[in-house]
Design a protein around this nucleic acid. Sequence first.
DNA 1: TATGAATGAGGTTTCATTCAT
DNA 2: CATGAATGAAACCTCATTCAT
Lengths: 188, 188, 188, 188
Amino acid sequence: MAHAETDTLTQIFSATEKIMAREGFHHLSMHKIAKEAKVSPGTIYLYFKNKDELLEQFARRTFNAFLCVIAKNADETLSFFEQYRQMWWNVWHYLCDNPMVLANVNQYRSLPDFSDICAEAQGTTYWDLFCQKAQSAGVLCDLPSKILFSLGLATAINLAVDQAAFKQLWSNEILENVIERTWRSIQK
Amino acid sequence: MAHAETDTLTQIFSATEKIMAREGFHHLSMHKIAKEAKVSPGTIYLYFKNKDELLEQFARRTFNAFLCVIAKNADETLSFFEQYRQMWWNVWHYLCDNPMVLANVNQYRSLPDFSDICAEAQGTTYWDLFCQKAQSAGVLCDLPSKILFSLGLATAINLAVDQAAFKQLWSNEILENVIERTWRSIQK
Amino acid sequence: MAHAETDTLTQIFSATEKIMAREGFHHLSMHKIAKEAKVSPGTIYLYFKNKDELLEQFARRTFNAFLCVIAKNADETLSFFEQYRQMWWNVWHYLCDNPMVLANVNQYRSLPDFSDICAEAQGTTYWDLFCQKAQSAGVLCDLPSKILFSLGLATAINLAVDQAAFKQLWSNEILENVIERTWRSIQK
Amino acid sequence: MAHAETDTLTQIFSATEKIMAREGFHHLSMHKIAKEAKVSPGTIYLYFKNKDELLEQFARRTFNAFLCVIAKNADETLSFFEQYRQMWWNVWHYLCDNPMVLANVNQYRSLPDFSDICAEAQGTTYWDLFCQKAQSAGVLCDLPSKILFSLGLATAINLAVDQAAFKQLWSNEILENVIERTWRSIQK
DNA sequence: TATGAATGAGGTTTCATTCAT
DNA sequence: CATGAATGAAACCTCATTCAT
């Protein structure tokens, strides 16, 4: 029976994610993806010109999903700190709830064109807009938003990866402490 | 002609690094390594049981080199902040001076057993010792040293990667600012 | 162009047999098999997990073919001696008509798992059944059928191998003599 | 320390035998032989031009050892049957006492030139001489000695191989029975 | 005589991609 | 749209042999 197009595509993407998490980026083969997605190898080539294009679109999807996660439950009536706190927890929970994404975080950057994809979004993401506003309001210091990301939300990613890799569990108390401290580091 | 043993090993490792940087992790082949190292493919198998073992030992070497870099020019007579500043610049300069390491940073993390290698060193690195002393002296806050790493030195890595990926150049002023701010975030 | 499945398998098996006979067991390579079978090397791996599995299945096929040969033209209305004689000639003619099998006989026994394959068939072969009946009828002596095989039909194999190895030709008279003598040795 | 020449040769041959028994003919490599014999690969080439020559000499040694075994405890004052019986048991015990030889029996025939080596000895072996005398005395039938070997002593080899392959133990009673019966089959 | 690191041709196996159905 | 057997280049790895020491 034929799948609806979106169905097949979704299956291919999630098969890709699963195998990447399970066996690592360099054991990712078209055959394995096809098998996991329960389609034939040939079918994948109806949707993508070749493996690189599949991976590029996969990277794009993943990156966009991540951008959406950051913006989740956004509420501009809250204080800037509370908005930051919300985004930090968004990232944290997303990674904890999606162990496959977590397992792949480092591998995504090896994806073809991942830098380009990130660069395209430059300046238009929810985080960029947040930084602009908070800087205008004199709350955040005047560093480029990319640097602010490294000092701020990137810590959520680092900590989640560490937690998974070293089988440790950070308490909420510690994490709230981290949120406050990283906020302090990017404040005016 | 016979090479001295250390020579051959060194050649293999640096060939691996070069190709990884030039063509990326997934274009790394034993043939290419052999050619670049000017040895025959078979020779590599005198030193490593298979490709995975070569990569694991390569990751181990790289990780250890990185640990040494952090401790460079250590001077315990300096203030804790100055010591931190020194380590941050060590990381930064190492990555900027070794674009090949930089290009590979993310790939290293996908290396088989990289987590294990990191875990082994846990608690005995120069950074860990520094944190202990600074915490005893009441200068650093009481978070696990791994978390302090993510808030502190990890920003040097993140920024260096970004700088390379997005072809931007951060001024020394900005970087000094980042050092101060990240120091602030891990202070008592 | 796609082959029918049985076609391809058959081609692979008979290519294996041909090369084994022509160049010997230790010059058997997957490339040669592929070339002889007019398929690509990769194709073989669609049907067999690896070389060892191909060889094991090949041994199994060969052994089964041999079992069938023994039972050819079976006629239970004949005297037990005549039945034995028929089987002996079956073995002899099969080996003389299939010099490739003959050339490989010893190599088959070195095949991985060949003993297991033989052991599986234990007690259910046509020879085993023949021995049971002849023993019940008080015609054959009461030794295990495996031993009776060594005294009886095995001589057909030995002689055929010798004939090929030493380029000699045994006359029918001699062979009939052998049949009678070996029959005498297994009689009651 | 240097080995005496015979020492080294002996070690190489017995290493060859060991590996053949343990891993089979087609996993026999010069490196493994060298390691097992505790010499360097290069040393083997001081004694043999190449692998084939090593194997050929190995085959020759093995074949000669076998010929000697047959003649062991020869006593021409005994009846022909008793002499036959002695030879049969010689073969049997040799194989049971040397499981490595037993494991290799089938593989020997795959050795390069094994047929030639056998052919060279044609007509001059102790078995051949025994047959001539017994035929002159009118005790043995007038078949070629090679055929008589297949009907007679070859059964000792077959049974010993079976016993090892199928983990069965034949009682002395059965074996004596076999000796008598095979003797009967080659008598006048 | 003895070594053993090095060689490199050639073996086994994988995998992105195609194409007849 | 969908299939999946087939492809074959290229990957990984082995091993008989050499040669500087």
